[in-house]
Design a protein around this nucleic acid. Structure first.
Lengths: 313, 313
DNA sequence: CACGCAAGTGTTACCGCTAACACTTGCTGC
DNA sequence: GCAGCAAGTGTTAGCGGTAACACTTGCGTG
């Protein structure tokens, strides 16, 4: 019992006794048994993260932001990855984490089906979604995708472009929807014609194919790609087609991956602060665990980074 | 007791009884308490991963490969991230995971200081390192960096280049050392002069600076960059300096990140199969946990991917 | 000088599960 | 007809901590 008091710093212990306990701990290599402690206290000090098994820059960065904030608050993180987002796979991951007795769960899967899977989680269990959409029944933190898309689109229009074409992400990704929506709204508000949407899957390859498809269009003078990887593919396709960027066509992306400043040409893009997203996500979960509102929302504002790909050159 | 038997499928239970138990479980929403189970069995079913807090493509991919293999084997993964590799930070992360009573630890930190931190782990505790160097006192799995560097360098020499310059990664990274070693050995074996090494930090920015520094060199006709991000920076610097790739200088990278096929020009690079590394890492740890050899080693062979940046065009 | 009280330490019970063993039942084999 | 055995189920103890309470000691107070 005295040992317990020394370790947890609860209750009074004579300094000399404390020293003897600590000495014995060092000598014996004693390590408290976390299972026994969890059993009696009912707390595991563990949070679960459902992560998409992808190297997409955003999700991976967010994961580390969460881990950081959680560690500072004394929690450890258990991950359960999901190869493709889907209602049942996300539900399975959540169930697997709950069996591990995590105290709360963060879902990084900005996907329509993931949002649906979370509806099934009991209201008294703390779950938070990153980018989970406005209709979610759990607290959601997100970067304001619509606003970011608006900024990029307005930037292109302000350069005197007649309209802006869009290479969108997969239709079942909420972020792709919001970016497309922000782009469309902005065009309409400015009275610009809304061209057909070319859809990719976030990969550079799909951006390349979109770029080849766009290269044949007349009246093509500005392209807003749904992320930087697809923008890279577009740049590549245009280079092969002899279309000069930014002279003939201006191109913008989304995310500001660290490489985008070194594309040919350097890419104008919308920066998302993923580390901040991670930290705020943890904060939201912590609030939820203390009985906060299930309808809590947090928005992170993105920032337009202007580089040569839309430059006046 | 009968419930325990049903859940764990140990011992005989009459089918009808099993059905009733399962029905009750469903009805009550019963979930076994993992802490209590861990307490009595002495097994937590948890593995720890010490990961570098970075978006480097390799480590993140490896992490998912490990998670996948571990999940299939019935383990869950707890991560402890480290902002910068160092003897004490890695040791802290290991200690933090051991307090969580993980059954084994995988360290993804191919860094000299990480290797030293692992020497301090007791021999009877299962630890495996990814890319931990040959001198490590724990089992190590690694991609054969020297061989990959050799392939890239020989490819450039075979194109009739007089010699190959190298943009190396940080000196305290084992992978950077091995790639540099493979490059140097190959030049020496072919009787080619060994130019000065330009060193970066894996980032595109550092590659760009290296490229600017190289752009002033005479006799520059081939560059082997330590990873694809730095190669991208080199390509950018050369483009700005009016050096045409591959016509004037040929450039190769390392990693085969998905974007490298869409660089300008598409990048010749050395592919590492990180998912395979992750799977084999888990396998090695599983072997270690069953009392395997602490001196076990596993090598994954990389593959040269030839694209336009070294092309004959 | 008896009493109350705080500091410091110890005792007991219990968290929820499973290993080990005990018990009941029905069948097989001689 | 009974020993022996397997199937199926129950009982007991203990994993290693902590909450709650009990106990001793020394001190200040009326």
């Amino acid at each position: 019992m005295t040992v317990s008091r020394v370790i947890n710093e609860t209750g009074p212990v004579r300094p000399e006794t404390r020293a003897r306990v600590l000495a014995a701990i060092g000598e014996l290599g004693y390590r408290p048994n976390s299972a026994a402690r969890a059993l009696v206290t009912g707390r595991t000090g563990t949070l679960g993260v459902v992560a998409l098994e992808s190297n997409l820059y955003g999700p991976a960065s967010t994961l580390f932001g969460i881990e950081n904030a959680a560690r500072e608050a004394g929690y450890v993180i258990t991950i359960s990855s999901v190869s493709r987002p889907g209602r049942s796979s996300v539900a399975d991951a959540v169930e697997s984490l709950r069996r591990q007795a995590v105290e709360g769960i963060i879902v990084i899967a900005p996907h329509v089906s993931a949002a649906r899977a979370l509806d099934a989680v009991p209201a008294d269990f703390p779950v938070v979604a990153v980018g989970g959409g406005e209709a979610a029944t759990v607290p959601v933190i997100a970067v304001d995708q619509r606003d970011g898309a608006r900024r990029a689109t307005e930037h292109l229009l302000a350069l005197g472009r007649r309209t802006v074409w869009h290479v969108a992400g997969p239709e079942d990704w909420l972020e792709a929807r919001d970016r497309e929506l922000g782009w469309r709204e902005t065009l309409e508000r400015h009275g610009a014609p809304v061209p057909r949407v070319v859809r990719g899957d976030w990969s550079s390859r799909s951006g390349y194919e979109a770029g080849r498809s766009l290269a044949g269009e007349r009246d093509l003078d500005a392209v807003f790609a749904g992320n930087d990887q697809m923008a890279l593919g577009v740049l590549r396709a245009f280079a092969e087609a002899g279309i000069a960027v930014p002279r003939d066509v201006r191109v913008a992306g989304f995310d500001d991956v660290p490489e985008s400043a070194y594309f040919t040409p350097p890419l104008t893009t919308v920066r998302q602060d993923f580390i901040e997203v991670g930290r705020r996500t943890f904060g939201l979960l912590a609030g939820h665990m203390e009985g906060g509102d299930r309808r809590a929302r947090a928005l992170v504002v993105p920032e337009l980074i202007v580089r040569e790909s839309t430059g006046p050159r």
